[in-house]
Design a protein around this nucleic acid. Structure first.
Lengths: 135, 135
DNA sequence: CTATAAAAGACAAAATCGGTCTTAAAGGGC
DNA sequence: GCCCTTTAAGACCGATTTTGTCTTTTATAG
């Protein structure tokens, strides 16, 4: 239960790779894919979606490629994970109050809320900079 | 991300229903399914799997049905969830050390461990008895 | 204008989810 | 021993999600 998908795994690898780039340099998708062992076209999709939300910047044409959209110290693991997997949401009916007719009386509800907030807290307190420090 | 499936949702509803039974009484699968709003044959599968691991007891034939296998105070939400959804495992490579070649150097690993242990702690500290108290 | 590189979108195999249906087996009442 | 009830087991199945691939387009540098 609660498993990260490949997409999430790949996204993290890709972002960490970008965080380790020498300042000022740009990475080709082919280069990132090969280094991280991720299927190139799949990773391209992921990074394209990141470009849309400003998590990375991309440049086309000769000399193009990807760079982080912000300093890695300003990107949390939570952001990356939620960008690909959607919000941390252990129970469906937590999203819309209207969705679950039991939400007021259901005693399981507060437990899921606690799980959600703990996970958000943990992932939100880890920056990509920290994750990119090791070799 | 991290969503409980229907199966997990249904399992919890079923177990809570059983916990609310008058002591000594037995519930038919048809009765549980109707009261909880769960497809009967699907719920039957879930409770059958619970019977195998002793979480519930089942009796066939006239007067048969389901009862909890232990007092509800001795059953945790964690047990129920893991019984249907598998172990709390945010990252695949956490299961077998051999599975992930990066497990020693990967800095993301300890974060997932922390998430896992927090979730286990939260769900493990909630009993079915507590959850069945409300109306 | 050409070579390069990302963007966009259609397509699809495989796995998982969310069940159904049928047949078997066990137990109670007569 | 023979029904009737009720769970057990397993085959099956459609929809959705996952995990990609392939092709075409667009932007850019030189």
């Amino acid at each position: 239960m609660m498993e990260l998908t490949r997409k999430g795994e790949y996204a993290i690898r890709g972002i960490i790779y970008l965080a380790r780039l020498k300042p000022g340099s740009v990475a080709l998708i082919s280069e990132i894919a090969e280094s991280t062992g991720v299927p190139q076209t799949f990773l391209a999709k992921i990074l394209q979606s990141f470009a849309k939300i400003g998590l990375v910047n991309s440049f086309r044409g000769t000399g193009g490629g990807f760079v982080l959209g912000r300093p890695p110290a300003k990107i949390t693991l939570l952001e990356v994970v939620e960008a690909v997997e959607g919000p941390i949401m252990p129970n469906r009916c937590m999203m819309d109050e209207s969705g679950c007719e039991f939400s007021r009386t259901c005693l399981v509800h507060p437990v899921w809320r606690e799980v959600q907030s703990k996970v958000v807290q943990i992932l939100g307190s880890v920056t990509i900079e920290e994750l990119s420090k090791g070799e």
